[in-house]
């Protein structure tokens, strides 16, 4: 059972449908107990950082996610969910994140159109199981205005994309995985990536 964190924002259905397709049981939840018993936690995307982290804190979920991640439970953050894993976000102010990963979240440079919206190619940095059966330069779907910035741990970078500079696209540090794009909306490549993640945690 995978616990998908429900923080009252954005499109979570697509992710549930994708997991259904892959034959994995998931539950959308705000209940810390359910999060504790799940074998993996997914923090989904879409929304604004400030509201998302406030919801996680107010509902007592931030603490549970940190505790479970510290115990080694696999946690996956998608889009905003990935950004929430970092220490600080500068989206409309300065907000403290979950701090599972070192680094900050900054606005994408105005030298390019913001949001970064659409299908962009992936460049592989680490050949690990997450990237199994995914061809180099595969297109995946991004939609975000903020991205993980320059001071993250470079050895966590599994894949990146280019958009006004380097955009960390897939990051991994032990049991913590972040995906900046939307695998649930990235066609066959996205489903393969989710399959790889599910194999990794099973």
């Amino acid at each position: 059972m995978i616990a998908i964190i429900d923080y009252d924002a954005g499109n979570i259905k697509s992710l549930q449908f994708a997991l259904d397709k892959l034959g994995v049981e998931s539950v959308l939840t705000k209940d810390p107990k359910q999060i504790q018993v799940a074998n993996s936690i997914i923090v989904p995307g879409v929304g604004a950082f400030r509201d998302a982290i406030a919801s996680l804190n107010n509902l007592g979920m931030a603490e549970v996610i940190k505790q479970e991640a510290a115990k080694g439970k696999p946690v996956l953050g998608i889009c905003l969910g990935m950004q929430l894993f970092y220490e600080t976000s500068f989206e409309d102010g300065e907000w403290e994140g979950l701090g599972l990963l070192k680094g900050t979240v900054n606005r994408i440079t105005d030298a390019v159109k913001v949001p970064h919206m659409g299908w962009n190619t992936l460049t592989k940095h680490i050949d690990n199981n997450l990237f199994k059966d995914i061809p180099e330069d595969s297109f995946v779907y991004f939609v975000h205005s903020y991205a993980v910035g320059g001071n993250y741990e470079k050895e966590t970078l599994v894949a990146s994309s280019q958009y006004g500079g380097i955009i960390p696209a897939i990051v991994q540090k032990d049991n913590v995985v972040g995906i900046q794009f939307h695998p649930e909306k990235s066609g066959a490549v996205g489903l393969q990536l989710l399959t790889n993640y599910l194999e990794m945690i099973s």
């Binding site: 879409v46 929304g47 604004a48 509201d51 409309d92």
Partner: peptide, 8 residues
């Protein structure tokens, strides 16, 4: 945009 993010 403030609630759901500009991207959507």
């Amino acid at each position: 945009a403030a609630k759901f993010g500009s991207q959507c």
